[in-house]
């Protein structure tokens, strides 16, 4: 059910705040991916950037809760705008 549109795939670091985003892929190793998947970050899931901090640290909204994400992590999540 992957949504097909022409928006470019970017890492979460560079995605616009406030827009609805969809996760395209995650990387960073099995353990890490499984861990963030349990928190609701996995391919085809929607999320939204609530606030952007310096160097890629973010607060995102996913599955009804807000998650704080460190700088190294946002690079490992690829998203696109829907």
């Amino acid at each position: 059910m992957t949504i097909v549109n022409n928006m470019p795939v970017v890492s979460l670091t560079f995605a616009p705040a406030g827009a609805k985003l969809i996760v395209v892929s995650t990387s960073g190793g099995r353990e890490f991916e499984r861990k963030i998947a349990a928190l609701g970050i996995y391919a085809d899931e929607e999320l939204e950037i609530v606030e952007r901090h310096s160097q890629g640290a973010l607060v995102i909204n996913v599955k009804g809760t807000r998650l704080a994400i460190g700088q190294g992590m946002s690079k490992k999540i690829k998203v696109k705008v829907i």
């Binding site: 861990k35 963030i36 809760t65 998650l67 704080a68 994400i69 460190g70 190294g72 992590m73 490992k76």
Partner: peptide, 10 residues
């Protein structure tokens, strides 16, 4: 490696 930071903000 540094543990990637992810935490729920309740």
């Amino acid at each position: 490696e540094n543990e990637p930071f992810v935490m729920e903000l309740p």
